[in-house]
Nucleic acid binder design. Structure first.
Lengths: 334, 334
DNA sequence: CTGTTAGCGCATTCAA
DNA sequence: TTGAATGCGCTAACAG
């Protein structure tokens, strides 16, 4: 139903090649005929059909964005960063949110195809070997964000060190009984940051000569509610922790709620540290590990564009810094 | 570089028509040859090129999603609802976030094109007459969410009534000095909910015989920080309000921060009501107007699918309910 | 400077 | 049940 290039050509009394030329500035066109073509385009309200364009060009002008945990503010912040760059580009964004393991599999298997997207950016997911085969074989330019892989470009952060720093801070304050609340360490989701943060937690304790008490580590899904539940458990232990490090700010909020429920004063009787520094952390006056969420999206897309423009770019793994932001949920134990 | 349908046909020693048939189950195929084709497909790791498929079918298998204020949790929640339905469909999602007025214009002008998307869902934006022309003329199935238009299908809510209810509640509690903090009423962005909520605010006051004090209404951008700034202004007025109704939960959090800054106790010395009931509102114990954010996305997409399946569906405008959720930021004035 | 043509990869019709 | 031919709308190479 919409006008095609042929309609324009006929109305402007030119060939379709000429129309294409004025559309893409692909070759010089006489000013007179250009005007006629432009007039015809305007009159017919013609817009090139993108499917035709894509097929002919062999490009989709689409960037695939795969993003899990989409409900969490940190992920949204990453996506915002990515969108800010993407919006100024010629590419459209094809969004894939992944909520379940089966979705994860399906998406990682079906999305990386030339002819479907020109480039792919994957957030917070560690591709399996199988996924990798798929991606490499399909030869679609790919960048990982908040994840790392020996064979893929990535924007990552040192979760182990960051978590260690946070726990070290608690130790410096004088805490010895430090709890850790995290996502499931063994989910089949393929995100390793929970594991890495746990590693950092363990390392800090070990180096301080504090034995690791498995009772002090709880894992569950990423929701605030679940975190609250886990914190309630920890805080009602016979010998409860005096500090809790949460794997995310959202979980830290759950911990704060639990403390409130039990009339435990933060930070006097309980110190809490989160991770991410999402916007609400400021409101909650939460001490937390700041990571550059927005920037990770920005840099991820920029790197992706680099890769797309230069297919044999040497492997690029960019580490983003983290920073412990001390606010008002941490204090020495009493 | 990737295998095409011809490669498969050759390898399976059949015509491309047969390959297409087994791909789409479009006509019966002999079991024997089907197996051969399937084997060839597997061996070549063939995946149909979507551009070719789209061009041939005249469909893009793409749903455009236009969403402003993308950084706010309420919008993310809507998008999540939409994605939950979209993810189970055969459609891909083309995401357009709009942050600026110029983006808004560009997107609303260039996105609604057959050949680019098969359906469009627009969140929280009131199309202008010009936009409407574009959309109607292009004949792209479209659904509005959190917005309404005489000629477009929509999922909307009664902002006026909801705001009025919130302010009425404050009046019932005994408040007479009620402030209102909102988004800019005259932004060129084309979102009317700020206006509507202001209307509800005014109506409630008027019906209660309370004069409207322009000093009590502040407008600024939607950020928490700006809201805090505006609240600071209100609370430092010679005769400050005893209650503040904020146009969104995020702004309400800013108000709470301002109160904290000034050591004003909430709810004893200041009542605060928000709008949206985003997840963090529960954490902040915020009294607020709950709207069905997630559901609005779900229903929006469902309606869109209905429209796409039945182009001359009579105009469908579905109103979603709101509900005042009383928590702990509201109390009678002292 | 411009018109014509081939072909991008696929679905589908028309014959067989 | 199947193969061959046509066309979707466009870009780019070719020829004028």
């Amino acid at each position: 139903m919409p006008a095609t290039i042929h309609d324009v050509a006929k109305k402007a009394k030119v060939g379709i090649g000429t129309v294409s030329s004025v559309l893409n500035n692909s070759r010089p066109v006489n000013e007179e005929t250009r005007k006629r073509v432009l007039a015809a385009i305007a009159e017919l309200d013609f817009v090139p059909n993108s499917s035709g364009r894509r097929l002919s060009l062999g490009k989709t002008h689409m960037i695939g964005v795969v993003i899990p945990y989409f409900s969490t503010p940190s992920q949204v912040e990453r996506l915002r960063g990515a969108m800010s760059v993407l919006a100024d580009s010629v590419y459209d964004v094809s969004l894939f949110t992944v909520e379940t393991t089966s979705q994860r599999q399906k998406i990682l298997k079906t999305v990386p195809h030339r002819g479907r997207i020109d480039g792919l950016i994957i957030f917070s997911l560690e591709p399996t070997e199988e996924d990798l085969q798929q991606i490499v074989q399909k030869d679609v330019p790919t960048v990982l964000v908040e994840s790392k892989h020996a064979h893929l470009h990535s924007i990552y952060l040192d979760d182990v060190a960051a978590a260690k720093e946070a726990v070290n801070y608690l130790i410096t304050l004088g805490h010895r009984k430090i709890g850790f609340i995290s996502d499931r360490l063994n989910d089949s989701f393929g995100s390793l940051f929970s594991c890495n943060r746990y590693k950092g937690y363990c390392q800090a304790l070990k180096e301080a000569g504090i034995p690791i008490n498995p009772e002090y580590h709880r894992q569950g899904d990423v929701s605030r509610d679940k975190a609250r539940e886990m914190a309630l458990y920890l805080l009602q232990l016979p010998d409860p922790p005096t500090a809790i490090f949460a794997y995310s700010d959202v979980q830290a909020l759950g911990v704060l709620e639990a403390a409130r429920d039990l009339h435990i004063d933060v930070p006097t009787d309980l110190s809490v540290i989160g991770y991410d520094d999402i916007e609400i952390a400021y409101f909650a006056r939460l001490t937390t590990v700041r990571q550059q969420l927005y920037d990770s999206g920005v840099k991820g897309v920029r790197l992706l564009f680099d890769v797309m423009n230069n297919p044999n770019l040497p492997l690029n793994c960019i580490q983003l810094p983290t920073e412990l932001v001390v606010r008002q949920t941490t204090a020495p134990p009493t």
